[in-house]
Each structure stands twice: as C-alpha cells, then as structure tokens.
C-alpha cells in the first residue's frame, strides 16, 4: 500500500455534501469505522500547541504553526487504523509536532516539521528492523511501522 503526504485535505465533507448526499452518508460511515477513537482528542492537542507562547520551553521555543497542527492531524487520519494505539503528542522547539509510540518492543517517533517535511525513527526490537529517514511523498514505511503497533485495548 502506498500513501502520500500531499495533498493534505482529506476531510472536505462539505464538498462531498454538495455532490451527493447519499454517497456522503456512506463515506462518513466508512471513515467513522476506520478512524481511531482518539483522533479528535489528539487533533485538539495539536491545535492547542498553536497557542503556545514564544519561549515556552525556556530555550526560545516557538509556537506550533497552524499548518503543522493541521498536517499532523491529517497525517494521523491517513496512517492510523481504528485499532492503532494513541500516540503521545509533543511540540518541538522549532514549531513542529512530534508523535511518539513507545511500547516494550517498538519505538516509533514521527516529527512533522512543516506540512511538507516529515521524518521518523523506528525500531522493532523483536524483528530487528531499525531505520531513521525523511519522507517526501511515499509514506509506505510509516504505514508499515504503524501497522506493527499492537492494537489498542
């Protein structure tokens, strides 16, 4: 499966509604089944980082740009499965957002520096898979990494 980073406007239900109300109902039902239950809470957390004050970390940290918060939420909607565990979400000093999953056998961290700049580190101690890389358009390694996370209980 190949996923791509751009374009990042997957939730334009308003446009869908204009087109065909019956197909919208089907699309919403499908998305609702596939969306992780924690997605809205994580999106709110990302949005809250936009309100951070300058120097919020005492080292000159910048507030998160709105486009980064939106891109992070969009990315999660693309990558996460309904059963995926929730990430920890943290702001970065340069105005980005980092998503982290740390479970006994897997570490996954995804850094969203801007709407088009994405990097990640992944380690699966069980399989020995370990990589660190930047992503431009092909997100299939991220899809695979998130797929290796155990289902949320």
């Amino acid at each position: 499966m190949t996923a791509t980073l751009a374009p990042i406007e997957f939730l334009s239900f308003r446009d869908l509604r204009k087109a065909d109300s019956h197909s919208v109902i089907r699309a919403e039902a499908t998305l609702s089944e596939q969306r992780p239950a924690w997605l809205d809470a994580v999106a709110r957390t990302c949005a809250s980082f936009v309100e951070l004050e300058s120097n919020w970390d005492s080292y000159g940290g910048r507030p998160v740009h709105e486009s980064v918060a939106q891109a992070t939420s969009d990315l999660l909607l693309k990558l996460a499965r309904a059963s995926s565990p929730a990430p920890t979400v943290v702001p970065t000093a340069r105005g980005g957002i980092q998503l982290e999953w740390h479970i006994p056998s897997i570490d996954l961290e995804i850094a969203v520096a801007s709407a088009s700049r994405l990097s990640a580190v992944f380690e699966n101690k069980t399989t020995g898979e370990h990589w660190e890389r930047e992503f431009q358009s092909d997100l299939s390694d991220l899809v695979s990494a998130i797929g290796q996370l155990p289902a949320a209980r």
Partner: peptide
C-alpha cells in the same frame, strides 16, 4: 527526544 534539540 524533542527535549534535546538545538535552539530555534
């Protein structure tokens, strides 16, 4: 790991 970055 975001706590160990250089300053912006």
């Amino acid at each position: 790991s975001a706590a160990f970055e250089d300053d912006p």
